[in-house]
């Protein structure tokens, strides 16, 4: 009961009573003040959101340097880059040959081997299956390498070739080539 009374009184005090000279300015004032407050609250949210993005020390570690000299022809190493495995393989001439011989029309995700490497023998790919994020086998000499001599993902049976391209299985795309650069003939920097 007290409420209805207060409501009625509130309505009479409200901004809508006609004939009051101050009304338009009050509405404008309220609008401006309200917008200002809304902008302030919005701006306040940003530091909270930004604090969850990678911190500066995390970003500083986003490059990994790899010394290629100990990697023999035909072998591969796995390095960690941004917490993910990266496959660095020193391919044999036959493997390069095989990768280049595959007709693009047969590939689920057509891409030439030349577009995926900087220097012929060195294939550098992120070792994460593009299907659901498992790490494919094929780095160790004893691992199964799948039907196309590259990698084989045991989770759902995706086969990758010697260029890291998907050839068979559920994965939709080729293994991702990370951004990298040769800092010398035997040194690369990933990221």
């Amino acid at each position: 009961m007290a409420d209805t009374m207060a409501q009625q009184r509130g309505a009479q005090h409200g901004a809508t009573s006609p004939g009051d000279d101050g009304e338009p300015r009050r509405d404008f004032l309220k609008l401006v003040a309200g917008s200002f407050a809304a902008v302030g609250v919005g701006a306040m949210a940003w530091p909270f959101i930004a604090s969850m993005n990678p911190a500066r020390d995390v970003l500083a570690l986003s490059t990994t340097e790899v010394d290629l000299s100990p990697i023999a022809v035909g072998s591969a190493v796995t390095v960690v880059w941004r917490g993910k495995p990266v496959f660095v393989r020193n391919r044999t001439a036959e493997e390069v040959q095989a990768a280049r011989a595959a007709p693009l029309s047969q590939l689920p995700d057509p891409q030439a081997d030349q577009a995926r490497v900087m220097r012929d023998p060195w294939l550098i790919v992120v070792g994460i299956c593009t299907h659901l994020g498992c790490v494919p086998l094929g780095q160790k000499p004893t691992d199964p390498r799948g039907d196309y001599g590259g990698w084989f993902c045991p989770c759902h049976g995706s086969h990758y070739d010697t260029s890291g391209r998907i050839r068979k299985g559920p994965a939709p795309a080729n293994l991702v080539v990370p951004e990298y650069a040769f800092t010398s003939d035997t040194q690369i920097r990933i990221g």
């Binding site: 940003w46 530091p47 909270f48 604090s51 969850m52 993005n53 911190a55 500066r56 020390d57």
Partner: peptide
């Protein structure tokens, strides 16, 4: 989300918040 409650890391994790975390 950024603090580490361990005697060997607490102080450093606070300084990391001050220096590296965005708006930390």
């Amino acid at each position: 989300m950024h603090y580490t409650p361990h005697t060997t890391m607490a102080f450093d994790s606070v300084e990391r918040i001050m220096r590296d975390v965005n708006y930390g």
